[in-house]
């Protein structure tokens, strides 16, 4: 097993270098740079001399080879550089947001798993009944609904419902214009309730979409497993249906489900660009969107590399979990 893990980690190096080169070139292929946006983006007088000074300071006038060397060299010296927009260390900017994104990813995954796995199992057991159809409609709706729209609807729904409650209770429970989740980060260590009130709504909104994918995967996998000989044998032995489902079918059906959960989890860490903006969450997704809009090459490159690294590691963890779930899988 350790040999396998080592081999996978070594294979990750060319993947990371390829990703670094790709993102480096892609960013520079987009016309414009941060200095033009920074100095002229608000329509005021722009001094060309100041723009050049800005470019010199940020190394944008250096050759592409030098810029790429500096980018890769940062990994060797453990210095990821500074955000071109704020001048703060990239590690500081990322670590500030990572905790929120990680917490949101965990909450979303939990919400999704709690909804999806039971629904997928029920849907498979009750195949082609109205229950199955209802679950499928629920799943397809989750996939079809754009997350920005769903997020806005959640906030609007909260505002309107609590506004009504406020009028009924004469403002005792909620403010006069309605209640919405906090708009600035609330630490779970300082205010656990406030933190929960802030993150549960985006977790539900994202979890629904995410659960739709997982529920459909659970259903397909369960249907396949339920037709296996060993399940028929278990039933023939007179085992309770509950035991057959839980012990023999579900565990074996979990392999593809865990793959999907793992990949989606990695995506959730840095990929909730829209949801984080709609709910004003100061996470990695929002930072990523802002960095791209500002043409902050350095920050964007490091965020992409972080996400690539997360995907590589998550895939590795998922593969290792396979062995635990299915003893037939060996990595020698």
């Amino acid at each position: 097993m350790s040999k396998y893990i080592l081999k996978r980690l070594l294979l990750a190096i060319p993947t990371l270098i390829g990703a670094a080169l790709f993102v480096f070139l892609l960013l520079r292929a987009v016309p414009g740079d941060i200095c033009e946006v920074r100095m002229g983006g608000e329509g005021a007088y722009v001094d060309e001399e100041q723009i050049q000074l800005c470019r010199d300071k940020l190394g944008l006038n250096d050759s592409l080879v030098k810029q790429f060397g500096s980018f890769i060299g940062g990994y060797l010296t453990f210095d990821l550089g500074e955000s071109m927009w704020t001048g703060r260390a990239v590690t500081e900017e990322i670590s500030l947001r990572f905790k929120l994104s990680l917490q949101l990813a965990i909450m979303t995954t939990l919400v999704a798993a709690l909804i999806a796995i039971p629904l997928g199992v029920i849907s498979a057991i009750k195949q082609n009944t109205w229950i199955d159809y209802a679950v499928r409609v629920f799943s397809i709706s989750g996939i079809a609904m754009p997350s920005f729209w769903l997020g806005l609807m959640v906030i609007l729904g909260l505002l309107l419902s609590t506004e009504w409650l406020s009028s009924v209770t004469e403002g005792r429970w909620f403010p006069d214009g309605g209640w919405m989740p906090p708009i600035e980060y609330v630490s779970p260590f300082k205010d656990p309730f406030g933190n929960f009130a802030q993150l549960i709504w985006p977790a539900l909104a994202t979890g629904w979409r995410y659960s739709a994918v997982v529920a459909r995967m659970t259903r397909s996998a369960m249907l396949e497993v339920l037709r296996e000989d060993y399940v028929r044998t278990a039933r023939a032995k007179g085992l309770l249906n509950k035991l057959v489902i839980n012990r023999h079918a579900l565990r074996n059906a979990m392999l593809p489900v865990i793959t999907v959960l793992g990949i989606e989890f990695a995506f959730l860490i840095g990929g909730l660009v829209v949801t984080e903006q709609v709910f004003n969450l100061n996470g990695l997704g929002k930072l990523f969107a802002e960095s791209v809009l500002n043409a902050d090459y350095n920050m964007t490159q490091q965020l992409v590399m972080l996400v690539v690294l997360l995907f590589v590691l998550t895939n590795l963890v998922v593969d290792v979990l396979y062995a635990w779930l299915d003893p037939r899988i060996r990595y020698s």
Partner: peptide, 15 residues
């Protein structure tokens, strides 16, 4: 709060 809709709702909800 970069999104205009959110800024409006923040004032509405007294955030």
């Amino acid at each position: 709060a970069p999104k205009m809709a959110l800024r409006t709702q923040a004032i509405r909800s007294n955030r």
